[in-house]
Amino acid sequence: MSASKVMIVDDSPIDLQHLKDIVTTAGYHAITATSGREAYSMAKQSRPDVILMDVVMEDVDGFEACRTIHQDQELNKIPIVFVTSKNQKADRVWGELQGGRAMISKPYTQEQILSALSSL
């Protein structure tokens, strides 16, 4: 799959902007959301090719948002890559069980993000 539209979901304005800078500099079109609830709504509306999703967010966390997206027949083919401070083995296993394709730990490098996008 060749991703061109990337949704970035993070409640931290700094992390959101940093990820947006990485993907847009690499030539991807970036759309953003600041919560899991907004991510689901935006995914329905804009149909991104891939989603980079934080886990630790208020209201609806990234794991719940991933589950919701993957239960929707119209959205369940969109790959989700978690970009998170949660980096324990249990977090990785739980993320996979929710439908996540990969997990990148914060702090991350530009190369890690771009490698994940190019491998989908």
Rank of each mutant, 00 (worst) to 15 (best):
A90N: 05
I104T: 11
Q45K: 14
G62N: 02
D21P: 05
Y28P: 12
Q45S: 12
V60W: 00
D72S: 13
E58K: 15
I113A: 07
I69F: 08
Q71W: 01
K44D: 01
T25S: 15
S118P: 02
Q98E: 14
V6F: 02
A3V: 14
A65C: 14
S12K: 09
R92C: 04
S2L: 11
Q88V: 02
V93L: 13
N87T: 10
R92N: 02
S119L: 04
Q73F: 02
D15H: 13
L97M: 14
D15V: 08
E96M: 13
P107V: 10
R92Q: 11
G95R: 09
K77I: 07
H18T: 15
M103R: 11
T84M: 05
E64L: 14
A102W: 08
A43H: 03
I8G: 00
A102P: 01
C66I: 13
D21V: 14
M53V: 07
D54E: 07
E96P: 00
I51T: 08
M57P: 06
M7F: 02
T109V: 03
E111Q: 14
K77E: 15
Y108G: 01
D59R: 10
M53Y: 08
T84S: 15
I8S: 01
S12C: 11
G62C: 02
L75D: 13
F82D: 04
G100V: 03
E58C: 09
R47E: 06
F63I: 15
E96W: 04
P107K: 11
V81P: 06
P13R: 10
D91W: 07
A26M: 05
T34P: 00
S12V: 04
S4G: 01
V9F: 10
Y28S: 12
H70E: 03
K86M: 13
Q71K: 15
M57F: 09
Q98I: 05
F82L: 08
G95C: 06
T68K: 14
G36N: 01
M103T: 14
E64F: 03
V60H: 01
D72H: 12
T34H: 07
P48I: 10
E64Y: 05
L117F: 09
E111W: 00
K89V: 13
T34R: 06
E111Y: 03
C66L: 05
S105I: 08
I22W: 03
G100H: 03
A30M: 11
D15I: 07
I22G: 05
E38F: 10
D54M: 09
S115A: 12
P107A: 12
A26N: 09
D11F: 00
S46T: 10
I14V: 15
I69Q: 11
V6R: 10
L19K: 03
D61F: 10
D11S: 02
D49N: 14
K44M: 06
I31Y: 08
V93P: 03
Q17S: 14
K86R: 13
